[in-house]
Design a protein around this nucleic acid. Structure first.
Length: 206
DNA sequence: TGCCAGGCCCTCTTTAGGGCCTT
């Protein structure tokens, strides 16, 4: 059973938006959060077996030259499967990263048992007053120090992890809740916006 | 600088359409 207090926050850089259209992962980054602290990191480029276009090179800073020496996706994803183990998973706009994780694992007949929760859906409810709910905007909105460049997998996963912890702290302060677990955050991400307050108040009474 | 797709959400909805977010 996964530890309810442990999550792996992950982020993919890819050749495009849709694995169903043939897009592949080119970098995976992830951090493990245990008891509110980052305890492990994973980052590796991976060779998708074809060239990436100039937009992706510009968008991510990951070039075809860099990918030429990278290990193939299959090797990297096997190592990543070991990294995530049975832990639950978090990503910003998780439906995107889940599609790529599922597609890359399916290619090598691997699976995972953890469940996904989405920091974007949670943020839309917890930080309804934010200008928008892009990762970069939320990081700025929460005054999280920016020390790197967005659109690289490890950096984005680090920032998503900090945003996740900031959301936990915000809810703890706002509703005076001593501890919030993954299942509760997963549920709030699916709670109608207007009912989020009532949800946490009900958690308080448990 | 952008398109692609997919899932989710909101609303002038549910017999639907459009915006957001990810690369």
């Amino acid at each position: 059973m996964p530890n309810a207090d442990t999550v792996v926050v992950l982020d993919f850089e890819t050749t495009g938006l849709s694995p169903g259209e043939g897009d592949r992962a080119i970098e995976i980054g992830a951090v493990r959060i245990e008891s509110g602290k980052v305890t492990a990191r994973f980052q590796e480029l991976m060779n998708p077996g074809r060239r990436v276009d100039s937009f992706i090179e510009s968008f991510t800073g990951i070039t075809n030259v860099m990918l030429a020496d990278a290990r193939p996706c299959s090797d990297v994803m096997r190592d990543f499967a070991d990294f995530i183990g049975e832990d639950n998973l978090v990503a910003h706009n998780a439906s995107f990263d889940k599609r790529f994780l599922d597609a890359e694992f399916e290619r090598i007949a691997l699976s995972y048992t953890g469940q996904f929760s989405c920091s974007m859906l949670a943020a839309r409810r917890i930080f309804q007053q934010a200008p928008d709910h892009k990762l970069g905007t939320l990081v700025e909105f929460m005054n999280i120090p920016v020390e790197g460049v967005f659109h690289r997998a490890l950096y984005d996963s680090e920032m998503t992890a900090k945003l996740w912890l900031a959301m936990l702290n915000d809810v703890r302060r706002r509703y005076a809740i001593s501890a919030i677990d993954f299942k509760q955050m997963q549920r709030v991400a699916k709670t109608p916006k207007h009912a989020v307050g009532k949800f946490w108040e009900s958690v308080c009474q448990l």
